[in-house]
Amino acid sequence: MQDDFEVQLRRALRPVEAPPDFAAKVLARARAQRVVAFPRWIAAVAAALVLAAGVGQAIHVERVRRAERARDQLILALRITKAKLDYTRQRLEKKNHDH
């Protein structure tokens, strides 16, 4: 059973209506947050792409290094072959000269 004081208290504390544009503001903020959330997804994809590009670059560098090593080995092999051929040619020339 309420007395007069409680009745007055209830009237004093009656609900206050939200501003007319309240719902519109909440919806606008919800939309803004969705827009913010989208670049986060994009950022994740971008990070994955950067990672993939990094891995690709590392693979490319390794291939170049292998190719350079192979080229150096080929040059060395050609130099050895040339030295052997020169030696053989010199031996043949000397033999012909002796005869």
Binding site: A18, P19, F22, K25, V26, R29, A30, Q33
Partner: peptide, 12 residues
């Protein structure tokens, strides 16, 4: 108003 909007957004 700010707090109420926050609460509605969290609820959403």
């Amino acid at each position: 108003e700010e707090l109420s909007q926050d609460v509605f957004l969290r609820c959403y």
